[in-house]
């Protein structure tokens, strides 16, 4: 047996599995998205893009995903920087703090938010006690609930992406900046942040994609009236059983993600290894 044969044998099961159980299903979905009763058609796409209801769903998806990504980056960058610069013991605890929610099922975490945000839940109650909210105040079934829940779900992804880059920044660069008269905040802004940009970009790409394509948290926290695109896809598959339309929406979702991500990645200097 040659080296070539050995390596081929090792890689072949995975190659076949991914080809048959990953690429063929996606092709099938693409085909279905343009198939009608009388041959190929773009009806499903025009139906989506011509309906104000669905355009509104699309806009909400993009808007919420952008907000969630920005918040995750704004919290994730300082958190990752602190994680990289504290002592080893504290760092371990902070890593556990980030990994524990990350490894817990999204369904479980969303349930926690349902309890916290419901009318009788802790958060509205505290806000009422502080006089910041009225008696009937509720956060559930609002876009705010979706944003809160999604940021908690996705913050670990952002933090770990940035942490991977920040740990590799040479500490002496910061010390040099300080010696030459920079304040701490100036060092952070002019030295650390620019070097951390690849991590922030990688994290943002990940968070935006995950946020635009998730429906479990938005469905449970936003309710059926506040639909996002992924929730609408899920409904088309399970409730209205309109599979070609679901496929078309999935294509629109992916095209939309690419449309936003590609220029962003280009702008920020190419995709980094995150």
């Amino acid at each position: 047996m040659s080296d070539r044969a050995e390596n081929t044998l090792l890689v072949l099961p995975g190659l076949l599995l991914l080809a048959l159980a990953f690429f063929v299903p996606i092709t099938q979905m693409l085909v279905l998205s343009v198939s009608g009763e009388n041959g190929p058609t773009l009806d499903h796409f025009t139906r989506f893009l011509g309906d104000p209801y669905y355009l509104n769903v699309l806009w909400r998806t993009v808007r919420l995903s952008l907000i969630i990504t920005v918040i995750c980056a704004a919290v994730g960058f300082p958190l990752a920087y602190i994680m990289a610069r504290v002592g080893p013991r504290l760092r371990l605890w902070l890593i556990v703090l980030v990994i524990l929610p990350l490894m817990t099922s999204v369904v479980v975490r969303t349930f926690g938010w349902m309890v916290l945000l419901s009318r009788s839940g802790l958060v509205p109650q505290v806000l009422r006690d502080l006089g910041l909210a009225e008696r009937n105040f509720s956060i559930m079934q609002t876009e705010l609930a979706i944003v809160i829940g999604m940021v908690q779900v996705l913050l670990p992804f952002m933090t770990l992406s940035i942490l991977g880059v920040v740990t590799r920044i040479d500490r002496r660069l910061e010390e040099a900046a300080r010696t030459m008269g920079c304040t701490f905040m100036q060092t952070l802004r002019t030295v650390v942040f620019p070097l951390a940009v690849p991590g922030i970009v990688a994290g943002s790409l990940l968070v935006f994609t995950l946020s635009a394509s998730s429906f479990v948290t938005p469905n449970l926290l936003g309710g059926s009236r506040i639909q996002v695109l992924a929730a609408s896809i899920y409904r088309s598959v399970t409730q209205t059983l309109d599979w070609p339309f679901a496929a078309a929406q999935a294509v629109i979702l992916f095209a939309g993600i690419l449309l936003i991500l590609v220029p962003y990645a280009r702008l920020a200097g190419g995709r980094s290894n995150g």
Partner: peptide, 24 residues
């Protein structure tokens, strides 16, 4: 080959889920 094997990470799971359901 490496890119090929990492590609399921890039595609949102919901898109793959529909494809798998339809194909199966």
């Amino acid at each position: 080959l490496a890119t090929f094997f990492l590609s399921p990470l890039v595609l949102p799971t919901i898109i793959y889920a529909i494809g798998m359901l339809m194909l199966w």
